[in-house]
Design a binder for these strands. Structure first.
Lengths: 249, 249
DNA sequence: CTGCTGCCTTGACGCAGATCAAGAGCGGGG
DNA sequence: CCCCGCTCTTGATCTGCGTCAAGGCAGCAG
């Protein structure tokens, strides 16, 4: 196992509309602003890439030449301090759009958490596409607005919540991601799958690995969750978790 | 002095293009995507409002009926937990656009820090305007992208930086706001004015008032800053501050 | 002038979470 | 099968920042 940090391998350019029309991610993503008849043009500019776990496909500070669209798997997005401290600013799952930045360089890095597939677009080409299809730009603004709201929520978490509240908030938020939970009834999802490590969770919540581990153990002892395996957590008392996440009791 | 929390008073609807064409904020703001000949239409839908210090003009959870554009003064944007813990997610100065949210309710509150003027737009009207002028939507996406980058930077600060690093970062960031510093040469601004209280700074940086006060005192003792008055700080050693802000030494 | 009211500073002390350290579980390779 | 490497858990101790408490100081009203 050598040179894992090398650039990901380009697999196939998408020649026809086919791949976009049948893409799993389309219904979640910005692409759904494009009508089927125009999908061919979108497909022509996209390049499908697979990224293996641990490999990074966006490097903070590199020239921002591409946009990405996640079609499978999960990425962690992060910023680093020179001494190695890391803050994960978000996890990008299926349908997530990456690379929004006016600047000429990426403001964050991105690395695959599990086996991923992404669609890659060149910035100038996507810009041209946006000029031709204002609906897509509207959709993009919508996405950006939602992320802004999520970012504000995360600032509240990082600035003002306790470790216990952070973990509860994290689990509740994860439970509402369709891809990553086994839904019983709407809003009643019980089992949350966590593709990322404890270290990733710690860096996302502004804590250490040890505190994450201890806090999960305590939530389990309190009967709020079960931990069947490292990659899964069962929400036993969702109402109580929500109340903890909101800063009550 | 009673009922300070009441709704702000509407002053004058803007009848002609005049006020927009001569607006101090136009060059900073999204409005500069609109050509002069179309400004009249923009002016027709705007309502100019003045907000006195301490008065809130956006309430978290209220129906999101309006967008705002700051034309003078500074607002603090914040989220609250039920027990009163507060996280200020940003300060909005002249030219800042507020209210981006797909949701039907505001995701944050906004309160004037100093005497403010804002332009208010109804959401449906602005939506119609955006459909007619895609350039404005493009500009808005640009603004949203920049805020997203700033939000990620703030997450790094809140999740991973020490109190000293947070204050240094805050002062450096403030120094690059044209309205709030006395610029000597480009990038060489020395005096930063701080319209907000220590409590506001604390809630912005995820600290307490006491820690903000102590940390500023220590930065002063170390010769990095001077504190001529409560509302102003002189950056004596900008390079050293930048290095502290970046997590070095 | 005096007293009041906010805001800020400073000091003493406590605690949530970080750090340091030692296993425990577990999957993969030989 | 055992060994190795990795992640996770758990315990002991430390510490940066929060909490509690006591003034200082400037602006304003009377």
């Amino acid at each position: 196992m050598v040179a894992v940090r090398a650039r990901p391998i380009v697999l196939e350019p998408l020649a026809a509309a086919e791949p976009c029309a049948h893409c799993d991610a389309r219904s979640y993503s910005v692409c759904n602003a494009i009508e089927i008849k125009d999908l061919e043009r979108l497909a022509a500019m996209a390049v499908s890439i697979s990224v293996e776990p641990g490999r990074s496909f966006i490097v903070e500070g590199d020239p921002a030449e591409h946009f990405f669209n996640v079609t499978a798997g999960t990425a962690k997005l992060f910023k680093l301090l020179p001494d190695g401290r890391r803050q994960i600013t978000g996890f990008a799952g299926t349908g997530h759009f990456l690379g929004l930045a006016v600047s000429s360089v990426y403001a964050f890095g991105a690395e695959a958490v599990d086996p991923m597939r992404v669609c890659r677009f060149s910035r100038p080409k996507l810009r041209a596409m946006l000029d031709d299809f204002p609906a897509m730009e509207t959709r993009l603004l919508e996405v950006a607005s939602n992320e802004l709201v999520a970012a504000q929520e995360q600032m509240l978490l990082l600035g003002r919540k306790t470790a216990r509240e952070r973990l509860a908030s994290f689990l509740i938020a994860r439970a509402s991601i369709p891809t990553h939970c086994v839904a019983q009834a709407p809003g009643m999802a019980r089992t949350v799958t966590l593709p990322m490590t404890r270290g990733d969770i710690a860096d996302y919540l502004g804590l250490t690995i040890e505190t994450v581990s201890r806090t999960l153990t305590r939530l389990k002892a309190d009967g709020l969750i079960e931990i069947p395996s490292n990659g899964a957590i069962v929400l036993r008392d969702r109402a109580a978790l929500e109340s903890v996440a909101g800063g009550l009791d």
